[in-house]
Simulated assay, not measured.
Amino acid sequence: MAMQQVAPRSMEGGAAPAPAPPGTDMTGICFRDQLWLNSYPLDRNLVFDYFALSPFYDWTCNNEQLRMRSIHPLDLSHLSKMTGTEYMLNEVMEPHLFVIRKQKRDGPEKVTPMLTYYVLDGSIYQAPQLCNVFAARIGRALYYISKAFTTAASKLEKIGYVDSENETPLESKVSKEAIDFKEVKRVDHILASLQRKLPPAPPPPPFPDGYIPPPTAEAEKGPETQQAGEPQQPSVDPILDQGPAKRMRF
């Protein structure tokens, strides 16, 4: 950042020519007067005199009129009775931070904020507007996101290129592998020996009382030989279809 300094007032009867009113966008510059900081303390009473040396100061403001009348430039009892551009000390954290707000006064209680400045450890800056802060942050985020996608895409292209070079058809791998019948017989022998070592399977549980097994193939042929008038019992599960009345009593 450029360091700018305004020439002090002339002591030989009269004042130095006032500089042009500061522009709206002066966020790219910084003001610091080390000689003044070495000579005077930076507190709430003298910070405005230090701010008046910077190029951010508008010499046509109401505060300057109070200074010409030997009144403290931040005296609100006098500023509230005036109209026009003025500066107000908004926040103070002595001796490191002072926030000064430029505003337009249309009445005792009607003011419109314009710009904000802050004095940080003796250096004066113009605070950027909120829309400019959001635009800068979003632009920076988009830059890093785009850079991340570009890096990821380049790595994926390299991975795909290596895989395409080393890729071999699955069928060719299977065809190259010959079947070893000795190994197959060995596996069968191991499985048979394990099966012999296992205990025999337990017998199936008995059917419940009254259960009629489903008809087999021979039973299906039976109805053809049976007489037409002879009734047939339906193959039902007495436990499921006949309910608790057929259950055994102990």
Rank of each mutant, 00 (worst) to 15 (best):
S10Q: 06
L79P: 04
L46W: 05
M11L: 11
I29H: 00
E64H: 15
L53H: 09
G23L: 03
L53I: 02
A15E: 11
A18E: 13
R32M: 14
L35W: 12
A15S: 13
S54A: 10
P21D: 04
L37T: 00
A7R: 12
F51T: 08
S77Y: 04
T83C: 08
R44S: 10
S70Y: 07
S10N: 11
Y40C: 15
L42R: 05
C61P: 01
Q65R: 04
G14V: 01
G28Q: 14
L37K: 00
F51W: 08
H78R: 14
R69D: 14
D43T: 13
P8R: 07
A18S: 14
Y40W: 15
P41M: 11
S70F: 05
A18N: 09
S54W: 05
P8V: 03
R67L: 11
A16G: 15
P22T: 10
P55H: 05
A20Q: 07
P17C: 09
L35Y: 02
D75G: 02
L76G: 08
S39A: 13
R44E: 08
H78N: 13
D33W: 08
Y57N: 00
V47L: 12
I71T: 06
D49F: 15
P8K: 09
D25R: 07
A16K: 14
G13L: 06
F56P: 07
N62D: 05
F51K: 05
D43A: 01
G23W: 03
S80K: 15
T60W: 02
E64T: 15
E64L: 13
A7F: 10
I29S: 10
D58V: 00
M82G: 00
P41R: 11
P55W: 02
M11H: 09
Q65D: 00
L46I: 06
P21H: 05
I29A: 12
L46K: 05
M82N: 03
D25Q: 08
T24N: 11
T83D: 01
N38A: 15
G23S: 04
I29C: 12
T24H: 11
T27W: 00
T24K: 10
E64P: 00
N38T: 14
H72Y: 05
D58H: 14
S54Q: 00
L35I: 03
P17L: 10
V47C: 08
R69H: 10
A52M: 09
T60N: 08
C30K: 12
G23I: 02
P55K: 01
M26E: 15
F51A: 07
I71N: 02
T60M: 03
P41G: 02
T83P: 00
R32W: 01
D43E: 14
L66G: 03
A20W: 02
M68C: 10
A15M: 13
K81C: 15
G14T: 06
F31Y: 04
S54L: 07
T83W: 02
Q65L: 06
Q34T: 08
D75V: 07
N38F: 04
W36R: 07
P19C: 05
L76E: 14
L66P: 00
C30I: 11
P17A: 12
A15P: 09
